[in-house]
């Protein structure tokens, strides 16, 4: 009668991530600019999958906000699990405790426009 159809063919997935560091008040050794952020993501991938495995995952930083160290990443859909787990298993950045927080994942960039989980209830 009815048929459930899940469309999983989109080419890319988009993720909204931010980098949480311990004691955010204490400054990092370097300003975490977009270049350093990209480097942190690539380093995470290389650490888990090695040189080749890491290089096979192409990640684009579409937008980076230095203020809260958050970014929108674009990755090929079949590499999503790899990228996500590499980010999850990262615990240090420049010998400071840190964690990548993945806020949203969507196959459509528009999906990241709003996030009902981050509404502030006052």
């Amino acid at each position: 009668m009815y048929e459930r159809r899940v469309i999983t063919k989109s080419e890319f997935h988009y993720m909204r991530v931010s980098l949480d560091v311990q004691n955010p008040a204490k400054a990092l050794p370097v300003e975490l600019t977009n270049v350093y952020f990209k480097q942190a993501v690539t380093a995470a991938l290389t650490r888990l999958f090695g040189d080749i495995g890491g290089a096979m995952v192409a990640v684009d930083v579409l937008k980076y906000n230095e203020g809260d160290r958050s970014a929108i990443l674009r990755v090929h859909s079949h590499n999503l699990v790899k990228l996500w787990s590499a980010l999850t298993l990262t615990d240090r950045y420049m010998s400071r405790k840190c964690a990548f927080r993945v806020h949203q994942v969507s196959p459509y960039l528009m999906g990241l426009a709003v996030n009902s989980r981050e509404y502030e209830h006052t």
């Binding site: 949480d20 699990v81 996500w84 298993l89 615990d91 993945v102 994942v105």
Partner: peptide, 18 residues
């Protein structure tokens, strides 16, 4: 061991896939 060691539930679910 530290607060920073905790990961979000969806991150952990993704790790399960790995």
């Amino acid at each position: 061991r530290e607060a920073m060691d905790v990961r979000g539930p969806y991150d952990v679910a993704n790790l399960g896939l790995l």
